[in-house]
């Protein structure tokens, strides 16, 4: 049986302590800049905060993984290199990277620290994953959320590194690390600036009938009826009117969250080493609730007990959940 480590999100030092106390095996986080893919206003860690947080986690046997999972613009690599140097000095347990140049710098400069390949690298084939392992010494790959469990089982046999899969949270599958929808409307890059649908470009408008419209950079991307559940203001989850679909429809994806609580035993059996919970942008309340629930579930599986996971639908986007491609390629 794999270790089934629980990898948990933290957007603030308080959230990190919450995740550690709730039973995380490892917590992932990022600095307050473009070096990570949750570069949201008021979120993330200063170097001093990260140092104190690493100390807190290590005292309790929890690892800290530093996300450096964005792509430096050409010729502007200093910020990423400095972040890696700072993370190494602080003593993080692994770097989560997507860019080959960042991976190469860390492999050469800090070879004693593990490299994990971010989902943002979109490495979904054994050939792609092996390339990162052979050239940069990657120890773990975070798989894109487009693979079925049989496919994951096969990939595990064909690669020399550990596998991490998402098990809960935001389910945005636009080709990860490649999506440019936000750039198109706002001029900011999800993959280089680290922010999808920047809050500075988001507006919510409440209508007299109780409905609400969400806008990005002045474009209406969805309108929710008075009693309708809402989702994040991302283009990929908006509803649009097209000539062939005069009623509004979800052209790309739907506001729904991934929840694999029922598939954990199968994922472990398939050789998944680590389970990732999405949500560095979420609150301590979310972190506490989700980490506790999955901690109990993983412990039950390890002990051979029946899994009886808490209902987490209230924390899901649009208050809807799916097993996505893990269950079937026909999910959408």
């Amino acid at each position: 049986m794999s270790l089934a480590e629980l990898i948990c999100p933290a957007g603030t030092p308080a959230a990190l302590r919450t995740a550690v106390d709730a039973g995380a095996d490892a917590v992932y986080c990022g600095f307050q800049d473009a070096t990570n893919a949750r570069n949201f206003p008021g979120l993330n860690f200063t170097p001093d905060e990260l140092a104190a947080s690493v100390a807190y986690a290590h005292e309790r046997g929890t690892k800290v993984l530093l996300a450096l999972n964005t792509y430096p613009p050409a010729g502007k690599v200093d910020l990423w290199r400095q972040a890696a140097d700072t993370g190494a000095r602080i003593g993080v347990d692994a770097f989560i990277v997507a860019d080959m140049g960042v991976a190469d710098y860390i492999a050469r400069t800090h070879p004693q620290i593990r490299l994990h390949l971010s989902v943002q690298a979109a490495a979904s084939s054994p050939e792609a994953i092996r390339y990162y392992c052979e050239n940069f010494g990657v120890k773990r790959v975070v798989l894109p959320r487009i693979l079925t469990i049989p496919e994951i089982r096969q990939i595990r046999k064909d690669i020399p590194c550990e596998i991490e899969t998402f098990i809960f949270g935001n389910h945005g599958l636009m080709v990860e690390g490649r999506c440019s929808l936000t750039n198109y409307l706002t001029g900011q890059s999800t993959n280089m600036d680290g922010v999808c649908s920047p809050a500075s470009d988001v507006n919510y408008l409440r209508e007299a009938d109780g409905s609400m419209s969400s806008q990005l950079a002045g474009f209406t991307i969805d309108r929710f009826g008075p009693d309708e559940k809402a989702g994040y203001p991302t283009i990929c989850k908006g509803r649009y009117i097209a000539p062939h679909r005069p009623e509004s429809y979800y052209a790309f994806e739907e506001p729904v969250s991934l929840n694999l609580s029922q598939l954990l035993p199968e994922l472990i059996e398939a050789g998944v080493h680590a389970f990732k919970i999405e949500g560095r942008q979420r609150s301590k309340s979310y972190v506490r609730g989700v980490v506790r629930a999955f901690r109990a579930a993983v412990d039950d599986i390890r002990a051979g007990r029946q899994v009886n996971i808490a209902d987490l639908v209230a924390l899901t986007e649009g208050q809807k959940q799916t097993q996505g491609a893990f269950e079937t390629k026909k999910w959408r």
Binding site: A14, R206, E228, K229, Y232, S285, Y286
Partner: peptide, 21 residues
């Protein structure tokens, strides 16, 4: 930290307007 703001937004129990940032 007893309630999650995003969840309250999804359920429409929380409304925000103006400067989202």
């Amino acid at each position: 930290a007893e309630q999650d703001g995003d969840a309250a937004f999804f359920s429409r129990d929380l409304e925000v307007s103006g400067n989202t940032e």
